[in-house]
Computed example of a mutant assay.
Amino acid sequence: MREAQAAGRYERLPWIRVVAGEPSRVSVTMPDRVGGTATRPWALMRPGQRRALFRSTPAGLEPLWLWLNEDGMPRDPHGWHHTFEAANRRISGLGLDGFRCTPHMCRHSFALRWFSIGKLVRGHQMAHLSKDQTDDFREQFGDTWHLVQTMLGHKRVETTKDVYLEPFRRLEVEQLLAHSEGFPVARFMAEAFASHPRVRTDPLAGDS
């Protein structure tokens, strides 16, 4: 980014919009078309609109977009696919045939790992509660399915269950963990998932 600022690259971009003041966590203020300013919630701005936002600093214009290319330019939202393709080619060149990764595989891995962690944590949190208290807790705060749904940004929890966490549904983990006192849950999941076509590695690997 500093190199791009020094070279004046950002000032030459015709599509940028320089924000007014410091953006807040929930909104950003930009110049409007009639010489004034307009404040818009972040939640209503599309990725392409966010990518065009810059702010003025003593060092020059600075992109508000989190992901930048090596030359400092804001990265295209779909640019990660090219990054993974390049990485896959390098891995293949090392002789690791059959090993391939995509951005969406990382998303599935994220869902699987956090569902595993969420289940184990919630199990410890609610171990002392009665069934009625547990049901009340889930009614107020949702269960682990809804936790992962929120983290992935899904509109419907069925998408989270049927697509991203299908391995857990097949194992009926809800019933398993409800009767898991003294049962080696982490080891069982690692062994059970070892043969599942959608699971490459133990989702809890590396946890202590």
Rank of each mutant, 00 (worst) to 15 (best):
R46M: 10
P103T: 03
D135A: 15
Q125F: 03
V121T: 08
D136V: 08
V34D: 12
G98E: 07
S116I: 04
G48E: 06
W67Y: 13
V34P: 00
H104E: 11
S109E: 11
H78D: 15
A38E: 14
A87I: 07
E85N: 03
P58F: 14
S130Y: 12
F115W: 12
M126A: 02
L129E: 07
M126T: 14
M105A: 11
F54N: 05
M73D: 07
Q125H: 04
I117M: 06
G60Y: 05
P41F: 02
Q125V: 14
I117K: 12
G98P: 11
Q49I: 02
L112D: 02
T57C: 07
A43Q: 06
G35R: 03
L96P: 02
W65I: 00
M105V: 12
R138V: 15
T37R: 08
A86H: 13
T57E: 11
L94F: 11
L68Q: 07
P47W: 03
A127D: 09
T83P: 00
A87R: 10
H78F: 11
N88G: 05
E70C: 01
E62N: 07
R75P: 03
R51H: 01
R113D: 03
T83D: 04
G48W: 03
P74W: 14
H108P: 00
T39M: 07
P63Q: 08
S56E: 15
A87V: 04
L53D: 00
P77L: 01
G93S: 10
T57G: 02
T102Q: 12
R90A: 15
E70L: 07
A59K: 15
G48M: 10
D136S: 12
L61V: 14
F115M: 14
D71I: 10
G79S: 01
M126C: 08
A86R: 13
D135T: 08
R46G: 00
D132K: 13
T39W: 03
L66P: 01
D97S: 10
W114L: 14
R40H: 11
Q140F: 04
R75E: 04
G36L: 07
L61P: 10
E85Y: 00
P47Q: 04
R50E: 01
P47L: 02
G98R: 10
I117A: 06
L66H: 05
G118A: 09
C106W: 06
H128A: 11
M45G: 00
A38M: 13
T83S: 04
E139P: 00
R51S: 01
M73G: 08
E62A: 10
S109A: 15
G95T: 04
R122G: 01
M73Q: 06
D71A: 13
P77K: 02
F54E: 06
R50N: 01
F54V: 05
H108T: 01
E139M: 13
A87L: 12
S56G: 02
M45Y: 00
W80E: 06
A38C: 07
G35A: 08
A111E: 05
V121L: 15
A43T: 01
L94T: 04
A52H: 09
G72D: 09
E139V: 12
G118H: 09
F115S: 07
S92L: 11
M126H: 05
A59W: 07
D97I: 06
Q49A: 14
C106Q: 08
R51K: 05
W114A: 04
N69M: 09
P77Q: 02
R138M: 09
P74E: 14
S92V: 05
P77F: 03
L44T: 13
E70Y: 02
T37P: 00
E85M: 02
D71Q: 08
F99G: 02
I117N: 04
